[in-house]
């Protein structure tokens, strides 16, 4: 059985007021700003093809754009690295022992060294 998401009101929404305030400020600024008329694209220009051409430094597009070949390669490598990183982070060792990155702030180490369970007082 699925549950409908329900709006929960309460004090946990108070920090959200900061976001609202930010929006108000930005909105006021944007509404007050004036822009000249947009240039727009030429009638019947093939935007998608232009994007494709500019991505590979080709000059056949109807609309001009900058060259992105290097960025393309870099982003490809980045995606690959991110994927590998994600797999590395998510992998669980076969023995069940956690051998991934420990981010317990040294609590495990402290426990084994000092042989005590006491936490820092100000936790």
């Amino acid at each position: 059985m699925t549950t409908k998401p329900q709006l929960k009101l309460g004090s946990h929404l108070v920090p959200g007021l900061a976001a609202v305030a930010l929006f108000v400020v930005m909105a006021v600024v944007f509404v007050g700003a004036s822009f000249p008329n947009p240039q727009g694209f030429a009638e019947g220009a093939n935007i998608t093809a232009s994007i494709g051409y500019s991505m590979f430094n080709l000059d056949f597009g109807d609309v001009t754009g900058e060259s992105f070949l290097v960025a393309f390669i870099v982003i490809a490598v980045t995606l690959d690295v991110a994927l590998d990183g994600a797999i590395h982070l998510a992998r669980r060792e076969e023995s069940g022992q956690m051998r991934t990155i420990l981010t317990d702030g040294g609590r495990e180490l402290k426990r084994t060294l000092l042989d005590s369970d006491d936490e820092e007082g100000d936790h």
Binding site: I51, S54, T64, G65, I75, T78
Partner: peptide, 17 residues
Amino acid sequence: YYWGNVTGQTFTLFTLA
């Protein structure tokens, strides 16, 4: 669109990636 230039749109693709 405002500048009549596809750079922004191309860049959006990269941002998505």
